[in-house]
Simulated scan of single mutants.
Amino acid sequence: MRDVAQRAGTTIPTASKVLNGRSDVSDETRTAVLEAVSELGYVRPAGRSIADARGDDAFVDLVISGIEGTWANRALSGVEQAAVDAGVDLVVSVARLPDEGWLTRLLARPSRGVVLALVNASAPQLNALQAAGVPVVLLDPVSQPPASVSSVGAANWAGAHAAAEHLLGLGHRSLAVIAGRREHLYSQARVDGFRSAVGMHGDRPVPRVAFADWKRDRARQAALELFRTAEPPTGIFACSDHMALGVYEAAEECGLSIPEDVSIVGFDDLPEGEWVRPRLTTVEQPIADMGSAALRMLLRLRSGSAAGTLREELSTRLLLRESTGPATG
């Protein structure tokens, strides 16, 4: 702690305040201490987590990027069910950008560990949790997890590969992908998996890719641009069901029938995919199971029954419905 304080240009008590989540520290000082922790690799001595030091009744935390939408609800239900099964209490926080106060709030509580769901935590933030003796599991990590941090995800590459094989098997040659964000790990994996399947068929053109930031309206706009080209795609893979609904809207605006004029495949298997007509063919992602697996992994790390960094990838599967059909023309 003395080395951390010296590197951050502050006092030992102030550095300790930061790692205990105290609010009476300036943002500048807090940032300097977290960076020093990251650079020096400081870790609180074994058995001296915040919860252990206080002797308080402790709980586990779920920090999620947002609670709106079906994905968040399913992830929350999976984490909560696993917590109930294990007999531990759960505290839920929302990490809304650009607010990074979730870390300070978490450090101020006697947390036994945290599941970070779709939260792109920085290296200093992850190192601060490690330094405080708080185990971390990333649920559906946004970027490549550090070697020292455990994670639970889905077989994104394999799911997208299956989606492409399905469209190729129906005879579609002109294909396109509506992706999320270019820098998101799971978006990259889905694009790569789809492209890989198409690449195995040497006679098929490379699929066009548009990025829509996981937003329905931007997916609609991207699909409109694709449909208005000289050679519009006859098969579209949307990297989320939410964006697939935007493709539905674009097809309707352009007077295209699904699946007669264009086949559409989504990803997630959200209830909305069964509400639309025709029902959406999609890749099922076991979101609730992923949440449960993340909480169980956290408890194993906390108890010491698991050593080192853990990785778990749950399988996906293609669900065939009515939004895909044979290519015509």
Rank of each mutant, 00 (worst) to 15 (best):
R109W: 01
V94F: 13
V134A: 11
V92H: 00
V60G: 08
E274A: 08
R173V: 14
P98H: 10
M243Q: 12
Q285G: 06
V79W: 01
P271V: 07
V25G: 10
L168K: 02
G66N: 12
A250S: 02
L90S: 11
D27H: 09
R44V: 15
A123C: 01
S38M: 11
A58T: 14
E284P: 05
S111Y: 06
R204M: 04
A46D: 15
A128S: 14
G308H: 05
G153V: 12
P13A: 00
V198E: 03
S122K: 04
D213M: 07
D261F: 12
R317M: 05
L295G: 09
Q125A: 13
T328E: 09
R2D: 15
A158Q: 12
A53Q: 13
E249H: 15
V114Q: 08
T229C: 03
L301H: 14
R109P: 07
V247T: 10
G153K: 04
G308A: 00
T104V: 08
N20R: 10
G101H: 11
V119T: 01
H166Y: 05
S111M: 08
R7L: 13
A15V: 02
R296G: 15
H184T: 14
W275Y: 09
L245F: 05
L103A: 04
T324R: 11
E272P: 00
A158V: 11
L320A: 09
F267G: 03
A230K: 04
T104Q: 13
A158K: 06
A164W: 02
E68C: 06
G308Y: 08
R48Y: 10
V191N: 01
P278K: 10
T229V: 09
S77H: 13
L320K: 13
G47H: 13
D289P: 15
